[in-house]
Computed example of a mutant assay.
Amino acid sequence: MKDKKIESNKIADDLQPVSMYQMFARMFAHLAKEVVDEFGEKGAEAVKRGVWKFGVERGEGIAKRAFARGQKNDSDNYLISYDMDRSDEFESTDTYHEGYVEQVFSRCVFASEFQKMGMEKYGMLYCETIDPAIAHGYNPNLKCVHEKHFFTDNMCTFCFRMEGCKETKHE
């Protein structure tokens, strides 16, 4: 029998590939559910602490990216120095103001996956914690106000504002 070479990193043409974002969301939901089912509220708090630490670490990396570009780690440079590419699985509009940035997501693969799985409860452990943590790691004076969520509002809204800047309300 002759040896047959197969490229193992190729998805069959007739199959829809699963993105890393989808896999991450699914993995997170399953892990969070197991921890919460096993340890209750203490488990939920532990998951949120883990997400917070992960977010702060990411924010510190984003600050380094801004610094490497010769920029201050303020609200104007936060999103443009971000560490995660936006695929077409995310859709957002960013509006820059003096001292703050508003961001409105109309599509989010994480929220979509959590909803498909019926695991919004566990997804919220991530969604409510990650962006405030990233902003804090980027600059402790950058506050994240997360008013609307996909699970209740079919969109996510964020305001990233430097402390001392007026808070904005999303419509």
Rank of each mutant, 00 (worst) to 15 (best):
F105N: 05
F90L: 13
F90Y: 15
K72W: 02
Y100V: 01
K72A: 13
D74T: 10
D74I: 03
R69D: 08
F105L: 14
S81L: 06
G99N: 14
D94I: 12
V101Q: 07
I80F: 00
E89K: 07
D83S: 13
N73H: 07
F105Y: 08
N77V: 02
D94E: 15
D74Y: 01
E102I: 06
R86W: 13
S75D: 12
E89V: 02
Y82H: 09
S92K: 02
Y82W: 13
E89G: 09
Y78F: 14
D74L: 07
F105H: 09
F105D: 01
F90N: 05
I80W: 01
S87A: 11
M84Q: 11
M84C: 11
R86A: 15
S75T: 13
L79H: 05
T95R: 02
K72E: 14
G99L: 06
Y78H: 07
Q103W: 00
D76A: 15
V101L: 12
Y82G: 06
Q71G: 00
N77F: 04
S92F: 01
M84A: 11
H97N: 14
E91G: 03
G99H: 08
S92T: 05
D76C: 12
M84G: 06
S87H: 14
N73A: 13
D85P: 15
T95S: 02
S92D: 10
E91S: 14
G99Y: 07
F105C: 02
Y78M: 14
T95W: 00
D74G: 11
Q71M: 15
Q71D: 09
S81F: 01
D83W: 06
V104F: 01
Y82C: 04
D94H: 08
Y100T: 03
Y78C: 04
E98A: 10
F90E: 11
Y78P: 05
N77Y: 05
E89H: 10
R86Y: 15
T93N: 06
D88L: 09
Y78R: 02
R86S: 15
S92G: 00
D94M: 03
Y78N: 02
S87T: 10
T93H: 02
T95H: 00
V104L: 04
G70R: 06
